[in-house]
Design a binder for these strands. Structure first.
Lengths: 341, 341
DNA sequence: AGCTTTATTGCAATCATTTGCATTAGCCAA
DNA sequence: TTGGCTAATGCAAATGATTGCAATAAAGCT
């Protein structure tokens, strides 16, 4: 073991120990090829041995960078919550991981914004090199305006037609398609679609739903599409409504696991068996989905990959590149409640 | 409307506009009483008018401050997860809110730490003025060592006997007590306690459980205490074990809502009715608790207040004050599944 | 050997702000 | 008027890194 030297805090000290100038140390640590390979190796070793850590404050100041990216959660607790809360936390974790690889930090926007444009005069804006928006909420227009500010930004969400910002999102059409096709393959013909098709993502899932129906030659019954918000309490009511109206159905595609669980609860309370009488598919694969009883078949978005790509797109922008949208694969996790065992 | 001037980015520019020196501007904006009140007012006005925003990078660099506090989530996905994921997100939000009031930012520690002491050489340590640990995990000892580093820190968790760090936490004893007493008041006598009493928080909740039993003169049956981890799949097994062993019970106090929901699932699958045959109480009040069927009575910790106090204690330390621990009130949210309607 | 070229390193300016100390201006008293 | 005092302001150093350009040394070429 090398003797544990007192920690060196300034490049100047390390330079003295190494017998070179500060410039050389700076370049050596930055991997600048100007510096002789041997010298560089020696300096890097010394830095490690003396436990030298660069002062990132000074570095960022000099480079006019922050090495921080801000994350804004576009959740609206009232009614338009993008999807389950669990989703946000997982996404946050995924982004933080992807960022740490690049030595970037994650700055969390304090509270849900009522207007995205407010960010312009906030710390979030000045103190970050770029911004990740998780979800679009109902602020597609504001996000478009925001993109004119030329701050590197990227949005997790659906690729709305007239967007001027870069989006990364799961393939909602395929998600809706897979869920629906799964039920169709199980022989179900009367499949409810639960999700508010005025919102960007449910709308695309609904497209997939229609596509699957068409493929199997099943006619769409518009009474079976229900604009239920992500908030789950409404789902039970919607199910009860259907039952009361004697509209029969044997399957349900839900736009979130919470909706699905709520629907299942309503169904079982009405004496129907899940999945025997009604097979249900959720969306998101929250932790509870696998443990609930009956366990829930659901569509999973690859959140880790999503976070990684969001970060990658943002970094590209920070480096001055132009970027294109990205659509991620989604997969179906088959469990019991969809009648598949 | 004053004509919108081009944005001033440097103090120097503002100084020129104001016809004073940079020093004066700096002092004026900082509210330094050396500066004549009129001059100060004039400068502040000019700053606002020209939309001048101080370069916080430069400022922090000069002041050797970061104006950032780091948050480390001590979750261990394997087995010791503190409580529901929802809890973390809510706590994170609460802390972020409390910090933004003080103009501090929140830096999220990327991934769960296997050893808290690793933080010492990480960005988290250098790039923050203080650290909030959410939960103790199994690292009480390391946290104690960490506190010797004299970095401002505060821990959300229970006040373990030999701690050298400052904690803020909910009153777990009262939480366990309230949950148990509630069931006792409903006439239940054989109450299962589901939670790993080797972990700090469940242990204290168990104390409250015992206290409630004693108060009602109910003898404790040690077969009814089950070391189930927060992870929920084990809860069903535990319940099934009890049923198989013909150990009868009519109530259950669970250390998380997920455990409770899992237990309820196992019970109903075995043909038992909840809450008629077995009344169940959870812990945390996750979103799902209110919507599940039957809806879940649970113990709620005041997370917003918790976040605020965590921040307050940390700020005090940053300012050089010494701080004391803090124990928050917890309350019981009564819903259907505990048999109360 | 003398000159040119190349590889490596060092000097010094720079980034935007804060702050100890010096300076100036204004005022009052002698 | 002049000296002394105070209130207000300015000068310049300092914070720790990066980088264009200059300088040096080594090597190659004739």
């Amino acid at each position: 073991m090398a003797k544990s030297s007192p920690r060196l805090t300034k490049m100047e000290e390390l330079a003295k120990v190494a017998g070179v100038s500060v410039s050389t140390v700076s370049r050596a640590l930055a991997g600048n090829p100007l510096i002789n390979a041997k010298t560089r190796a020696r300096i890097v070793d010394l830095a490690a041995k003396h436990n030298y850590q660069i002062n990132e404050n000074a570095r960022n100041f000099r480079l006019q960078k922050t090495n921080v990216i801000a994350v804004v959660l576009m959740l609206d607790v009232k009614s338009e919550q993008h999807t389950s809360d669990m989703f946000f936390l997982e996404m946050l974790g995924a982004i933080a991981d992807a960022l740490s690889v690049q030595n970037y930090d994650l700055l969390l926007a304090n509270s849900p914004m009522t207007n995205v444009l407010d960010i312009h005069n906030s710390r979030i804006f000045r103190q970050s090199d770029g911004i990740v928006f998780i979800g679009q909420g109902n602020q597609h227009k504001q996000l478009n305006e925001f993109s004119d500010l030329d701050k590197p930004m990227v949005v997790w969400g659906s690729n709305l037609p007239d967007r001027r910002y870069c989006t990364v999102g799961a393939d909602n059409v395929v998600g809706g398609y897979l869920a629906t096709k799964h039920l169709l393959n199980l022989g179900r013909k009367h499949i409810v679609f639960m999700g508010d098709i005025n919102m960007p993502e449910p709308k695309q899932r609904f497209e997939g739903y229609l596509k699957a129906l068409k493929e199997k030659g099943v006619k769409f019954d518009k009474r079976l599409q229900i604009d239920v918000p992500f908030e789950m309490s409404h789902a039970s009511e919607a199910i009860n409504d259907l039952l009361q109206q004697k509209i029969s159905f044997d399957g349900a595609v839900c736009c979130s696991d919470l909706i699905a669980l709520s629907a299942i609860a309503a169904l079982t309370e009405s004496g129907l068996r899940v999945p025997e009488d009604v097979a249900v598919v959720g969306y998101d694969d929250i932790a509870l989905a696998g443990y609930s009883s009956p366990s829930l078949t659901t569509v999973r978005q690859n959140i880790v990959q999503g976070g990684r790509i969001l970060v990658q797109k943002l970094m590209a922008q920070i480096n001055g590149d132009t970027v294109t949208d990205s659509v991620l694969k989604t997969e179906l996790i088959v469990r019991r409640s969809s009648g598949a065992w």
